[in-house]
């Protein structure tokens, strides 16, 4: 479905079912230079199990109008504007990587708007490797290569996707290639310069889940655990053998973790 925020089109996939704002809502926020399709093996389940689902494309990503928003704080404000446009007073937020920082910041800034929070591949500070950041700034193809290779765990290099026949490394690369010039840099840099993680963590008042990949290279398990430890009452789930893009590498385990955390609709 399409929403309008600040005069610009925002695309949100709804899990294959028309969005009903009267249902308890979950809003999914993707990672760097990605789009709503990264949630393909989680969103349909929730949409067909009594939830209103919005898997949004951030500004300048996927099917949403640009330009990109350069800061986590700006994206957090924009995310709440998306909830307004969708007629949602409250929603559960699920964010991955840069999306996890956006949802974290939004939950901290607008506690009355966020029911529950699930952070996937989240760590702060989320510093980006200098060489990767430089390559992304230059729109060098190396940036996509490194992001994809480091995003997926080593086990994913050999594949064996849960969805028969899909070769996830190339699927991930296609998303990066489809993103326009500057998109990856915008997202990477937003993570790199974000300083508000600890403050936001302390300010959280909602239930929070942290899903971590055991073999994550981008936000290593040790760092993700250190981050989670700063959140009161956080629930932790570590997905064995998974890298940073756990919702693609281990879609069922990711879905199960979310399903177990988010209250079942009555």
């Amino acid at each position: 479905m399409e929403l309008t925020v600040e005069g610009r089109k925002v695309f949100a996939a709804t899990g294959g079912k028309a969005f009903d704002p009267s249902l308890p809502a979950i809003v999914f926020v993707h990672g760097a230079a990605a789009d709503h399709t990264v949630w393909k093996l989680q969103t349909r389940y929730f949409a067909w199990h009594g939830r209103g689902v919005l898997a949004i494309d951030m500004p300048g990503h996927g099917r949403s109008d640009g330009p990109c928003v350069p800061t986590i704080e700006g994206l957090a404000d924009w995310l709440i504007a998306v909830l307004d446009a969708a007629g949602l007073a409250r929603a559960a937020l699920v964010g991955h990587s840069v999306g996890s920082l956006v949802t974290l910041e939004a939950a901290a800034r607008y506690p009355d708007r966020v029911e529950d929070l699930a952070l996937l591949g989240c760590a702060f500070p989320m510093r980006v490797n200098d060489e990767l950041l430089d390559a992304a700034r230059d729109n060098d193809a190396l940036a996509n290569q490194l992001t994809n290779a480091w995003g997926y765990g080593r086990a994913a290099q050999r594949g064996r996707h849960t969805m028969p026949g899909l070769w996830m490394l190339k699927g991930g690369m296609r998303l990066l290639e489809d993103a326009g010039d500057g998109v990856l840099y915008n997202d990477m840099n937003a993570c790199h310069i974000y300083e508000g993680g600890e403050r936001a963590a302390r300010a959280l008042s909602c239930r929070t889940l942290s899903i971590m990949g055991e073999k994550d290279i981008m936000t290593p398990l040790k760092q993700a655990r250190k981050t989670a430890a700063q959140i009161d009452g956080v629930r932790e789930v570590v997905i064995p053998a998974a890298g940073h893009i756990m919702m693609d590498e281990a879609p069922d385990k990711t879905l199960d973790a979310l399903r177990d955390f988010l209250p079942q609709p009555t």
Partner: peptide, 9 residues
């Protein structure tokens, strides 16, 4: 919409 780059397959 659902599967993006994997739509055809």
């Amino acid at each position: 919409e659902e599967f993006g780059p994997g739509a055809f397959i």
